[in-house]
Simulated scan of single mutants.
Amino acid sequence: MFEDVFTPANLVYLAGAFYVAGLAITNQIILRLFILGGTGVYLIYYSTIAEHPLWEAIYVSLLIGLANVGGLTSLIARNSRLAIPAAHADIYFDFPNLPPGDFRALMKLAKRSTVTDDRQITVEGEAGEKLYYVISGSTLVRKGDQAFILAPNLFLGEIAFLIGAPSSASAWLEEGAEVLEWRFDDLRRKCARNTRFKLALEAAISADLAHKVAHSMGRDAVRVDNIPKPMIDALETVPKN
Rank of each mutant, 00 (worst) to 15 (best):
F2D: 04
E3A: 10
D4W: 09
F6R: 09
T7C: 02
P8A: 07
P8H: 04
L11V: 03
V12L: 10
V12S: 03
L14W: 05
A17I: 13
F18I: 03
V20A: 12
V20L: 07
V20R: 13
L23M: 09
A24G: 12
N27D: 14
I29G: 11
I29W: 06
I30S: 01
I30A: 02
F34L: 09
I35A: 02
I35D: 00
I35W: 01
G40M: 11
G40Q: 11
V41F: 05
Y42K: 01
Y45I: 12
T48M: 08
T48F: 04
I49W: 10
A50V: 00
A50N: 13
E56M: 09
E56N: 11
I58D: 13
Y59E: 11
L62Y: 13
L62H: 14
I64T: 08
A67D: 12
N79C: 02
R81W: 09
I84Y: 00
P85M: 11
P85K: 09
P85E: 09
H88L: 00
A89M: 02
I91K: 03
F93Y: 08
D94N: 09
P96F: 05
N97C: 10
L98C: 06
P100T: 14
G101C: 06
A105W: 00
A105C: 02
M107Q: 01
A110E: 10
K111R: 13
K111M: 08
S113A: 07
T114V: 15
T114S: 11
V115G: 07
D118W: 08
R119N: 12
Q120D: 00
V123C: 15
E126Y: 07
E129D: 15
E129P: 07
L131R: 04
L131K: 07
Y133E: 00
S136I: 00
S138V: 02
S138L: 11
K143N: 10
K143P: 02
K143V: 03
Q146N: 05
F148T: 13
F148N: 05
L150Q: 12
P152D: 07
P152R: 06
N153I: 00
L156T: 12
L156I: 14
E158M: 02
A160I: 06
S167A: 15
S170K: 02
E175P: 04
A177L: 05
A177F: 03
E178P: 02
L180Y: 10
L180S: 05
E181D: 15
W182I: 05
W182Q: 03
R183D: 09
F184E: 01
F184I: 00
F184Y: 15
D186V: 03
R188H: 14
C191H: 06
R193V: 06
T195G: 06
R196T: 13
L201Y: 02
L201H: 06
S206W: 08
S206Q: 14
S206G: 14
A207V: 01
D208M: 02
D208H: 07
L209V: 00
L209Q: 07
H211M: 01
K212E: 07
K212V: 10
A214L: 02
G218F: 05
R219V: 04
D220T: 09
A221R: 05
V222E: 12
R223D: 06
V224A: 04
D225H: 03
D225M: 08
D225P: 01
N226Y: 03
P230A: 05
P230E: 07
M231L: 15
I232L: 15
D233R: 01
A234T: 09
E236L: 03
E236M: 05
